[in-house]
């Protein structure tokens, strides 16, 4: 019944409310952490080449896929539809991208994997997705991806799809906020 008690409780509840508002935002890094640990939508950090044992007993089919966002007037395609490789073996593949417009544009490629958990096992040493790519009007270029499939890839995965989607790079120059923390830009 005491007014003072009410105020104390009010303060506590306001703290809870503000805390939960913060929690909403805390879910962002938390979400990416979970995705990274489970390999879904994994951040596409560059890894340094390590000496890995090539697992010649297994052969994986690696498929390549390319997409362009509806707002980007580029053409983008892998130069090979798929390759077969052993886990641990270093491979390089090429993608080709062409600016169909009459303007210079910077695009950013965002990777994605099927099945999702495979993202954790695709170790990229070099990739055009690490930075934005600027193409002059009408320019066409080939871009390499150099990678190793981690031998820890689960045994029941036989086919992995590596997909990229090129978007217009948002706010080129400004630091991106809110996006996933892992390095891809």
């Amino acid at each position: 019944m005491d007014k003072a008690d009410n105020r104390i409780l009010l303060k506590k509840l306001v703290v809870v409310t503000v805390g939960m508002f913060g929690f909403g935002f805390a879910m962002v890094p938390f979400y990416y952490k979970i995705c990274e640990v489970t390999g879904i939508n994994s951040g596409d950090a560059q890894v340094l080449a390590r000496n890995t044992q090539v697992d010649t007993r297994r052969t994986i089919t690696l498929e390549f896929d390319a997409n362009v966002d509806a707002h980007l007037p580029w053409r983008f395609r892998p130069l090979q539809r798929s390759i077969r490789l052993h886990p641990g073996e270093m491979v390089q593949v090429l993608y080709e991208v062409e600016n169909l417009s009459d303007r210079d544009i910077t695009g950013q490629a965002i990777p994605s994997y099927g099945p999702q958990l495979a993202g954790r096992y695709v170790k990229k040493i070099e990739c055009f997705c690490f930075t934005g790519q600027t193409l002059k009007a009408g320019e066409k270029k080939q871009m390499p991806v150099m990678m190793v499939m981690d031998p820890a890839l689960p045994n029941d995965v036989h086919t992995v799809t590596l997909s990229y989607t090129f978007f217009v790079q948002p706010d080129s120059g400004k630091a991106a906020q809110g996006g996933r923390p892992a390095a891809n830009g």
Binding site: T17, V18, G19, M20, F21, G22, F23, G24, F25, M27, V28, Y31, Y32, C35, N41, D69, Q108, I110, T165, F167, V168, Q169, P170, D171, K174, A176, Q177, G178, G179, R180, A182, N184, G185
Partner: peptide, 29 residues
């Protein structure tokens, strides 16, 4: 409810203030 407020705030900043919480182009989801 504060979590919802956070979510729609992120939508708002994605719409107007160049954040990329939910925009794949900027690394969001």
């Amino acid at each position: 409810v504060p979590v919802l407020a956070g979510a729609v705030t992120m939508l708002l900043t994605d719409r107007h203030f160049d954040t990329h919480f939910f925009n794949p182009a900027g690394g969001g989801d």
